[in-house]
Nucleic acid binder design. Sequence first.
DNA 1: GTGGTCTAGACCACG
DNA 2: GTGGTCTAGACCACG
Lengths: 134, 134, 134, 134
Amino acid sequence: MFQVQITTGGDAPIFRQIVDQVRVAVVTGKLSIGDPIPSVRALAAELVVNHNTIAKAYAQLVRDGVIESQQGRGYFVARKRQIYTQAECNRRLAAALDPVLSEAVTLGFSTDQILAFVEKRLRRYANASTTKDP
Amino acid sequence: MFQVQITTGGDAPIFRQIVDQVRVAVVTGKLSIGDPIPSVRALAAELVVNHNTIAKAYAQLVRDGVIESQQGRGYFVARKRQIYTQAECNRRLAAALDPVLSEAVTLGFSTDQILAFVEKRLRRYANASTTKDP
Amino acid sequence: MFQVQITTGGDAPIFRQIVDQVRVAVVTGKLSIGDPIPSVRALAAELVVNHNTIAKAYAQLVRDGVIESQQGRGYFVARKRQIYTQAECNRRLAAALDPVLSEAVTLGFSTDQILAFVEKRLRRYANASTTKDP
Amino acid sequence: MFQVQITTGGDAPIFRQIVDQVRVAVVTGKLSIGDPIPSVRALAAELVVNHNTIAKAYAQLVRDGVIESQQGRGYFVARKRQIYTQAECNRRLAAALDPVLSEAVTLGFSTDQILAFVEKRLRRYANASTTKDP
DNA sequence: GTGGTCTAGACCACG
DNA sequence: GTGGTCTAGACCACG
């Protein structure tokens, strides 16, 4: 069963936490193509959050092709497709990655340590990254 | 000589750029314990930035124990270094990294591509990677 | 001077009207790269509309690469870049175009009339479509 | 025999798909004045759709003068055809078309590409283009 | 029941 | 001054 958990009063905006968790659920296979995700109002009630906040998160997931809405039935996990050009993908990844790498360096991690750390965290998505291997 | 460079109109807040650069300079050895750093007004003038922005950055650096103020003489690199335990460093890096990695996978990057990307972006901190090697 | 006008109580959502008008201003050359667009709060006051509505419109324009925000200075017309893959562009154009073509047919327009109509309306963007000719 | 086909889970509301298909059928001559159209409940059963949806579509068609109800006998294609003046038709088409064209230009399509795209999409209404040719 | 849009107003971050 | 996020609540469209 797909569960969302948010921490309030922290640094990460609520809607971004939701976006991230749905994305993780999809890339780790906890959610499969066609699976329904909680309705906007139901999730808002469950998380004790305004429904606009959920709507904003879902809208972003739709824009990125992760989910899609079906006429009054709700949102469902979408078939994966390439939306952005390679240059745009690179630009987005760099924009997201650079502040994190900067923080890692200030925390005292060396290049090798960071690379090992990234590799370790990526193992959680192993099934996603090997889908093209026979 | 210690130099700060900021990029305006970007996504990273100016005060954070200053904080990060001072921290990186300390971690990589460009700044040593006791070294003076530019005064608030001098740096504000040099970067053509509101001096409140510089003051905010320095306040955060003092809070984090990276620099300290000496009454009326200015700011200097503090002797205190390790603020967080290794476990806490790992926890913070994981928290910052995970959403980026899930976005990378969603964008279609493979594990190898992400690792190569990280390595490339890390070259901007080249000297940081040699501080721990004998 | 760049002006936005909305019609309320109609069929088109306010935020979409704003998106369209900024887009038209850019592709017709009324707004050039680097030009500022009205601030969120200023435009909200001028149109007697909630600022969230303006923010939503601007966020969509940012996502599509039409404008970009600069650190506390406001929004500016962005340099044009290719964000979406060709397949995604085709998908988006088809999704936007099909309902309009269906309406045109039900209004009694023939294929030739529709094509002539499209060509006529496109002349307003003539300067935009010829930028690559020497 | 007159057939309605709907695509569920898409972006176009079901009731609008029905309205459009009846209008297109009338404009292209597939349905003639006085022809019966399926009853609300029959069509609802055939399309596996809520009968309120069918009723809503038929109500709109009645409002637009495309069909009329004959007490207890069902709905029939009405004689009345031209509702809007040519100027009004042009105004409506322009209002619907302009936002799509500005989006197309923003997506990077040239005038020629847009015209070719429109022509291609219009082929789905092939018979519509020959109704006015002798 | 589903989602979409909008308002009025609050509080925060950045400069 | 700029933009970003969120709430509480309303009203609408679609089925």
